[in-house]
Design a protein around this nucleic acid. Structure first.
Lengths: 229, 229
DNA sequence: TCAAAAGTGTTCATCTTACACCCATGG
DNA sequence: CCATGGGTGTAAGATGAACACTTTTGA
């Protein structure tokens, strides 16, 4: 036992709630635990923070190691510090909230032994520790942020139709939106670039394709513009 | 050195940004450090999280021990985990954001040797570690939350006038508000109880006093009402 | 020619903003 | 009687919500 301290220290981990959109369905990334406790059960990807790496780096490293996932969006969610949340000892976890684009970057096989899998939000199995609470909090955050920040684009392919975008909002917010009003609002914001391209190989009238114009968004944001949908 | 672990662990602390309103000026609570590093300098109240206590409890305990302050509102702000934020070693801190009512509960002398003091936001001295960053983030949070959650009342005495409330908003948001529109909006929300009392000992027409009607607020909130000012 | 989704404007109600004067009180 | 802040309404503009039909394309 080479590491000694004058006072007892809680262990420090990260756990990440990674959402992805797969064929227009919202999915959650889980890994199967191959160690006790909860051996064989499903849990959020995560692990111990190393001394000398930032907590954010730790979260990214664990995602890469456990699931081979490079996320496009990662932010802190909340720190869970109840002493009994891990049966072994006092483990404080910094939870993260992440979005990946499963369409442009489809998942590859997990790099180490543990297997990783994507679950529809309705089909989430029992989770280890307090991970259910963490997932719930992350989903609330996703719903909240979606309306006030342009994070939905992180889940879509670079080129998308207005209907794709609307479906995304409807699925995550869990309510229907008016097509005309939605289009009016999103176009009026001026943060979409019309690519003058059409969908290919669809059995109906092809939709125009757009991309998120991030530079323009940043410019508008500086001038006090607020995204809201 | 009685505590040994198989892997190195970062230290875990809390730091709290406590705001109070004093004679209608927003103040920040700081303590003077009596140990290196930054000995004699000002810093946020906080300290090590003990094994077996929740991180929230740790934050409250440190506030009580270092400044004798019982806060009415405390919530997590952010976890700062850069490995170089403390010159001694890797210290991860869970930062908290707290509000106290300095008018109904004026500060008492600090309980232990360290001295605590309230600083106007414009007069904040140099701070130890990355505490300046933490304070900035907390102030942004205060400004953001103030508009969408009824947290301003935590800073006011139980009985206040509409002008008191408006001044609070103007000071924190740093812009002027229209008196008539402000009153219309806040009255229309139906979350203020008119106490049918008047200010005493003022050298002008006395204002009506109100209190925040929290039960009604909670009821409205359940029915999907959203506070916004 | 049919099915399936794309695309497009107007109206009404609501909310937001701007704005100025009289009132009550104590000194 | 004057200085100080308390208290009040209206009109114009902006925003949000409801709503239905025509167009394009491939099968």
């Amino acid at each position: 036992m080479p590491f000694e301290y004058e006072y007892a220290r809680p262990a420090l981990t990260t756990d990440s709630v990674v959402f992805g959109l797969d064929d227009e369905d919202l999915k959650l990334l889980l890994i199967r635990r191959n160690l006790p406790p909860f051996e064989g059960g499903w849990a959020l990807p995560g692990g111990f923070v190393r001394v000398g790496e930032s907590v954010d780096e730790g979260a990214r490293r664990e995602l890469d190691e456990e699931a081979g996932v490079r996320v496009s969006f990662l932010e802190q969610l909340y720190t869970f510090g109840e002493p009994d949340r891990d049966p072994r000892e006092h483990v404080v976890t910094v939870a993260y909230f992440a979005l990946v684009n499963l369409i442009d970057h489809p998942p590859v096989a997990a790099t180490d032994a543990s297997d990783a899998a994507w679950f529809g939000l309705a089909d989430i199995p029992e989770l280890a520790f307090d991970h259910k609470t963490i997932v719930e909090k992350a989903f609330e955050r996703l719903q909240g942020k979606l309306r006030y920040e342009p994070i939905g684009f992180e889940l879509l392919p670079t080129k998308f139709s207005l209907t794709d975008l609307q479906k995304l909002y409807e699925r995550i917010l869990n309510r229907e939106l008016d097509k005309r009003n939605f289009r009016k609002k999103v176009i009026a914001m001026g943060i979409l670039r019309d690519l003058n391209e059409l969908q290919q190989d669809v059995a109906h009238r092809a939709a125009r394709l757009y991309s998120f114009d991030e530079p323009t968004y940043r410019k508008l944001q500086k001038d006090g513009f607020n995204f809201e949908l």
